[in-house]
């Protein structure tokens, strides 16, 4: 099992060891001693860490997070990372994202479409890691378009949802096609299914190519 990033620990909540970060609670998760449990069933990145994928995260990185929704995962990310930009395009969840961002002074919420990076490139700096969970059609294309925020060797941590691409096709076939598209811009380092935490999701660790 690979190391957890600094700022993420396994701690006991109600007798159960779970991932946790330090920060103000966001979604009613259990807390103890200033730590809050990180629910892997509600977070693809949490599941990637739980299943032992080597995310390459050490803690303190600058992060561009695509598909922030109401801030469940990105709030944990901001707890252990450096400046974190959170992109979400739906207004409803973005309202809750504002509440998660207000007490985190290095979490920057942006109501923008991840398919048009030029609408936020005037705000977002080059980052160490792009984390993506957009669950919409064309997920690999979104990751490719946002490669401009990574230097060569920069990391992509993506969750790919099979059903977002095609509700009937076999998930493995969908994953292969998406990975092929990703290879235009990235070198794939590791992939793993996120079961039992998330069905028909593939976790991907990739590195930006030259």
């Amino acid at each position: 099992m690979s190391d957890l990033p600094a700022g993420v620990e396994r701690r006991r909540f109600d007798g159960e060891k779970r991932l946790a970060t330090q920060g103000p609670p966001v979604y009613g998760e259990p807390t103890a001693d200033g730590w809050r449990a990180w629910d892997a069933r509600r977070s693809k990145l949490g599941a990637m860490l739980e299943t032992g994928m080597d995310t390459g995260l050490a803690g303190g990185e600058t992060v561009l997070y695509l598909g922030a929704a109401s801030g469940t995962t990105v709030s944990h990310v901001a707890d252990f990372a450096g400046p974190t930009y959170a992109i979400e395009f739906a207004a409803r969840p973005a309202r809750d994202l504002l509440d998660a961002s207000a007490p985190r002074d290095r979490l920057f919420p942006l109501l923008k479409d991840a398919r048009t990076p030029e609408t936020y490139a005037h705000v977002v700096e080059p980052v160490d890691v792009v984390i993506q969970d957009v669950a919409t059609r064309g997920q690999a294309a979104v990751a490719n378009a946002n490669a401009r925020f990574l230097d060569e060797g920069g990391l992509l941590l993506a969750a790919i949802k099979a059903r977002s691409e095609d509700v009937v096709a076999d998930p493995s076939a969908v994953f292969e096609r998406e990975l092929d598209t990703l290879r235009e811009t990235y070198e794939i380092l590791e992939t793993a299914r996120l079961e039992p935490f998330h069905e028909d999701h593939l976790g991907v660790v990739a590195r930006r190519r030259a």
């Binding site: 030029e118 609408t119 490139a121 005037h122 705000v123 700096e125 080059p126 401009r148 925020f149």
Partner: peptide
């Protein structure tokens, strides 16, 4: 409202 083609070292 603004935009940019590429990110910069804004800080």
């Amino acid at each position: 409202q603004r935009s940019a083609d590429a990110p910069g070292d804004w800080s």
